[in-house]
Nucleic acid binder design. Structure first.
Lengths: 209, 209, 209, 209
DNA sequence: CATGAATGAGAGTTCATTCAT
DNA sequence: AATGAATGAACTCTCATTCAT
């Protein structure tokens, strides 16, 4: 079949197929066989490139976390004021999650089982993202433009809401005629980001500013 | 070895054991065997009481969703003003999630796979909770005490952040000395609720009201 | 198929089929599938009764070693003089090996890989047999009817030659017309035992007795 | 990474690595991959030099059997009396087995499965060795210096005991403090040979000669 | 000569589910 | 209501072997 004999390409194909499936069905819900079928390669090739299923999963998650982290970091550097950084954080994360809907799925499914399928050093990926947000909040507080807050909760509000917004897309379609515009089925990700940023901004501004 | 001969009790034992395991390891990560072992009953009994694994899972999720729904509803009725209802919603959901940490796990793991393991009529449970919040927001807007908002996003911010707060408990312990108080490892659920309510309130209040 | 629903019987069937195959093809040369087929049961039943292939193998070897040990012990007790015990040892071991040709095969194949497939406590089985012979030799020496010898070498000469005699049966048939009577294809096991005992006796008797 | 470009050397490296592994783990217990790794060459090269795994195995065994045969033959020719030839046979075989412990392992493992992994013409190797011993015995009998014996049993006693002595080396170390000197852990191979020769000699000498 | 990529078959093991008692 | 035995399908992973370069 797909005998391209190009290691990099094959490996990438595997990783991508795996990502799609893991995001759709979770770690345990995906068989190595099915990944091979989707990638249109021989099952044994997966073991040629990855020690085992767990290692492949790791690679998938690591890739995504690396990508989103560097994306946020890159955009963040263009900003001057903490409030701009916050906006950038929200917009960048939302855009990435929108374009790579596997990230929210994988993140939620992994967190729902307490990171059972990931080695400890994998949390570096998650921690780095939180660290970024935390430093934004810290700088904002120091400069007096943000109120004091609980960083982890701000993080969870942003990341949690975006993740849920993305992962529930299909589900929300089913109940469109019941809830209409209240479930934002037609909203573009930018509108969502805008609204979220607007909310977070109000949250962080001093009460009588 | 006739264990107890009390159908209700046996069924409850099964459901409870299943809940713990499903929450910890996800649907696919749990074997019927392991549920039987935890419940200390014969594996075949599970099939005596539940058609199959999926039906048992449904029962588990349905139970939890019913419980949280009626709990919120009950507390909600004690309130008069929309802002009190909102506070009640947040505090009740958070308290329940704190006492039944299986709920956040199951909810996230289910949403992360788009409800793959649940029959459609199961979303009734999820929808009802959102409906409650939506009506609170609507009433608040009508009475002029809330700004206009995107209900689904408010819902996701509240539910998403609480869920993540609960499910990441173990994980956050590992990084305590790195992030200190910023990750709220010692916070009681009431403090979290209070902070969350405070944030949401600011979000919903008119900018210069 | 063979749904006898009798645990003991099924387990025995498995053990016996496994013994035949392991003896014929060695541990690695036998598939669990093939054992199931021979036993005419479902492959999963093997895992119902035995944790895994290695444990099944252990059980097989342990059974055989136990049986031969107790057989030798029983016969040994009927003897009075060391020389009779020696005769009994040789005849009993040879008879058992002849009737259970799986023992020599398994013993040789296991010793050829240094007991790689067996847990340490399994050597108890081998040690006990050697211990028996050693005590016979010791008693003989003390009573002055045996010359001093190297127990382990006497053991290896007896056990080694009988084992090889049994395991090469098929092979020797192929070269019958080349070597004729020199390879003892028609010898009954009693003749072999007799000859072996005669040889060992001469070995152990004082030079000028 | 052209390794050496010397066909003979590469082939020898493969054969030697294969020998070590086959002796340690048996035919089925060794993967072609592992042989390649040990030989530090590409796996495909093995198939370049050897049709398949079985052929490589044959080559290994054939080499060993050839070597030992010609070694015994060479030493044998230096002797005049049958008793000296017998001594030479025992000492040479023992010395070779001691220096090439792969031979005893392979021989036992092969005999334990009835030569399943070897083609028929491979037994030539085994037969030749037995033929040598047989002719020594015959000559001894004719000259009246040996008693009549069963050649195959004498062969098995010699070869069997030496083989077991070599292959159980590691195992015997484990039980040293239980059996002490009785298991000859510190014996040099010459002592063993001497003792064995002494025993066989007594066996073969006429009862009152 | 030499290599890394590819393959198909099959191995050991687990699991949801059913059957007979 | 309860149990232990049984099953077939699926899963993860390995292996001998071949292909293309």
């Amino acid at each position: 079949m797909a005998k391209c004999r190009d290691a990099n390409k094959t490996k990438e194909t595997i990783t991508y197929s795996a990502m799609e499936l893991f995001a759709k069905d979770g770690y345990e819900g995906v068989s190595v066989e099915s990944i091979a079928k989707k990638a249109d390669i021989n099952k044994a090739m997966i073991y040629y490139y990855f020690k085992n299923k767990a290692v492949l999963y790791e690679a998938v998650v690591r890739n995504l976390l690396d990508d989103i982290y560097y994306e946020i970091l890159k955009e963040s550097k263009k900003c001057k004021k903490p409030i701009d950084e916050m906006k950038s954080f929200i917009f960048t994360y939302a855009k990435f999650a929108d374009e790579n809907p596997y990230l929210p799925s994988l993140m939620l499914s992994e967190l729902s089982v307490g990171g059972r399928n990931l080695p400890d050093d994998m949390f570096v990926g998650l921690k780095r993202i939180f660290s970024l947000l935390r430093s934004i909040l810290k700088r904002g507080e120091e400069k007096g433009c943000f109120e004091k807050s609980l960083p982890i909760m701000v993080h969870f509000m942003i990341v949690g809401s975006i993740n849920l917004f993305i992962t529930t897309r299909q589900l929300r379609l089913k109940v469109e005629n019941e809830f209409g515009k209240d479930i934002c089925n037609d909203c573009k990700i930018e509108e969502i980001s805008e609204h979220l940023f607007y909310s977070i901004k109000k949250m962080l501004k001093g009460e009588d500013t």
